[in-house]
Amino acid sequence: MKELITHFWSIYKTVFENGRLIPLFLGAMIVIVLGRKKAEPGVPPLLFLLSPLTAISFAFTGLSFCSGPKETTKRSQTGLRIAVPVFLVLAILLSGRSVWSDDLADFSGTVSEQEAELDAVCDDLLSLEEAPKIVASPKIMASLLARSSSFVPLYTLPSPAGVEELPENERQIYEVFLTQHPDLEKIYRICHKEKRFYAIVDREQTWPEHGFENGFDLMDSVAGYDIYAYTGAAYE
């Protein structure tokens, strides 16, 4: 093991001995990205990932600085030590997306209000049945499933890349609730065999259609959410 590490270290030193190669590579990537940015919007996340890798690699080249390679002058060391942090910050700012953006951070208190509303929806549904079957938009579904394991979803919540792996029926239900006007007739056609289930919509963003004529009744309105119950009663 020690011999192996020794050989890898000697190869690493041969390639990166003076520590110039890594920041130059990162600098070249930044130049390419800046050139691409005009033609193609969006920056690949690879540049963001290169930042910590470059920083760690550069930190390890500090060992070679300590051992004092003869060809590395003090001036080039200073230049590198200034250039590398600048390149790293540029790479992060160009390619990283801030966690503090509007989609991810809310400082107005809206998030806590929405959480309280969804808590109320959750309690309302659980008061009706022990294991209510639910269907809703992916965001609402995820919020309700994260509050109680008693809910039975009518479609499995997919990962961003896993939508194609859903069974046909579930994918159709999932796609219905991606729209602002979910067609409840489609939901009825797929799920009519279910005895009872609930469709939850955000009243301020989603306006379902064809609900009443297909066996859905507006059962309750909790804060900004409407709960539709399907009982099939319209056809009994």
Partner: peptide
Amino acid sequence: SLPVASEHKPAVLFFICLLQLFGYQSETL
């Protein structure tokens, strides 16, 4: 633990804080 001069270590930590602030890349991640 990093083999950098001690005067540069806080800058490295600041860099890590910056990475976390700008760390969101996609819903998958």
